[in-house]
Write a protein that binds this DNA or RNA. Sequence first.
DNA 1: AACTGTCCCTGCAAGC
DNA 2: TGCTTGCAGGGACAGT
Length: 274
Amino acid sequence: MPELPEVETIRRDLARELPGRRIVQAGATGARSIRRHPDPVSFRAAVEGTTVEAVRRWGKYLLLDLSRPAPASVVVHLGMSGQLLLSSTTAPVVPHTHVVLGLDDGRDLRFVDPRTFGEVFVGSDASLAHLGVDAVDGLHSGAQLAAMLARRNTRLKPLLMDQGFLAGIGNIYSDEILHAARLRYDRTSGSLSPADVRRLYRAMTGVLRSAIEQRGSSLADSQYRDAFGAVGSYQLSHRVYGRQGGGCFRCPRSTIVRVKTGGRSTFFCPGCQH
DNA sequence: AACTGTCCCTGCAAGC
DNA sequence: TGCTTGCAGGGACAGT
C-alpha cells in the first residue's frame, strides 16, 4: 500500500526520466481510474501533445506538471495496489493496465491498478487543497508539530493517518512511527508531554527518511514496485507491522500485539509503547 | 468534533 | 480438489 516513502521513491525515479519528455499518445481503458473525467476522450485531449516539465509529490499524490494548459498536472494516486511503470512501448501489457501515456522516446508510462482504488486525472494543485502539510517536506520542527497537535485532541494513530492533518502517512508507517516514538496508537494528542512530542517528531522524520532511503516497503500482497518494477527493502526494517506474536526488538520480553481499530489492523508493543 | 461502520475492488489464503 | 469466506486497505461517506 503505497504511502509517502513509496510515492517519493517513484517520484525520484520519474524526476530523472520524465522532464522534457513529450506525451505523444494517451489512452485510458479503465473508466474507474479516470473517474474524475467524463470520458477517456477528455482525458486524452488534456494530455496528448504536452511535455512533462517536473515531477512533484504532495502526500501520497504524484503530480506530473504539464507544459499546457498551465497550471495543470497529471495527478496520480496509487490507492492500495497502484503501480506507475516505465516500460518499452513494445512490452506486453499486463492485466489491470488502465492508463498508458506514450512518450516521445519509445517508452510508456503505465498505470496498473488491480483494486482500482487509485486514480489518474488532469488537475491543478487546487484539487489537492484538502491535504495538510506534507509529512516530510512540510514538517520542519518539533515546535511546528506541537502547535498542530495543540489544535486537536484525538487519538494519535487516526490523527497521523488524517491526510488533512499531515499528508502521506498510512497504516504501515503510522504503526512504525508510533513504535519508534514509544507512544500507543490510542494516546490522545492532548495528553502528550513536550518530551513525547519531541520523540514523535524525531520518529516521524527518522522512519520516513529511512524508508525513503530503502526505497519503500514491498509486502507480499500489496505488490508495491518502483517505476522500473523493482521492490523496496524497508519491509525488512519493520518493527511492528505484520509482526504480531513476535518479540519486540526494543523490549524482547514483550510480544507485538495486533488489534482492530477504526476498521484497520494496528500493531504495537504493549511493553514499551504508552 | 470525534469516532465507527460501510462501501468500493481484486487477489490470495484459509477452511470446509 | 474446489468451493466459499475472510482479509488486506485509502478515502469518501453516513450515522451516532
